[in-house]
Amino acid sequence: MSFASTARSAPLVSAFRRTIWLVVVAVLAAGASCRRPPAPTPEVLALTTEALPLDPADGAWQRAPEHVAPLLPQDLVEPKLSKPSTPAVRVRALASASQVAFRLEWIDAAADDLPGAGRFPDGCAVQLPRSASVDAPDPQMGESGRPVEIVYWRADWQATVDGRDDTIQALYPNATVDHYPFEARSLQPGSEAQRQMARRYAPADAAGNRRGGLRQSAVEDLVAEGPGTIAPAPSTTSRGRGVRTPNGWAVVLTRPLPNGLGPRGRTQIAFAIWEGSAQEAGARKMRTGWVGLSMREAP
């Protein structure tokens, strides 16, 4: 029996939640004395705290209880993921008065952060219903009229933010290029005329669709109302940072608290992981259904 499936039987849920809460407090107390991490929880508990760390290695994360979310292949709409890859994602959450932050950690032997033909970057995402709700829309990208909000992180964007050059040689070290039109002698380096010439041969940039190239942030805010409808949010306010761990990735995603999620509130959350080595992108991903997300005041 999963916790989510009992969500509608309120007395049982609240009793269960109280129990979890006691367990969490006990484990936290134990953790404080002997530094053992808290035991995994059956749903995601976001502990309130003052400042939210963006660094996945920040010690503050160890105070948050961990939820281990098993992942399923996306096998509901074509194109499907035929072979399961990443088995699970470990999630911790912290919340401030206005923001909530998630730390996702998963095992991935190879860092895939080079975009290219037939190459796919590793990535992860969290999805929440637009308004806090236990009766969430379809976990598969939401429903028409009932949008979900997604914070999406990608390893290649992280590499760019961390300083990788915006050149073809940074992706293909042996590439040689004779000449680009924006390198014409008549164009002043750094001038607007030069930028315009470069944009002429970068149609997605010209269309305002920044999927690659230099960027300030490794994450993107998205909204969706069903499979195939995902679209960038009017602006990205979320932040994120991913680092390699000895055997995978740890990524922190920070976003504003969803509408109506108060200090003791509860909503739903879903996770997705893309394994670049398995050529996962878009609909080909490992994902969860809805998982409960509850706010808890830190002891």
Partner: peptide
């Protein structure tokens, strides 16, 4: 169809 690794879209 060709993937453009610098703009991140297919062309």
């Amino acid at each position: 169809v060709y993937f453009n690794p610098m703009t991140g879209t297919s062309e």
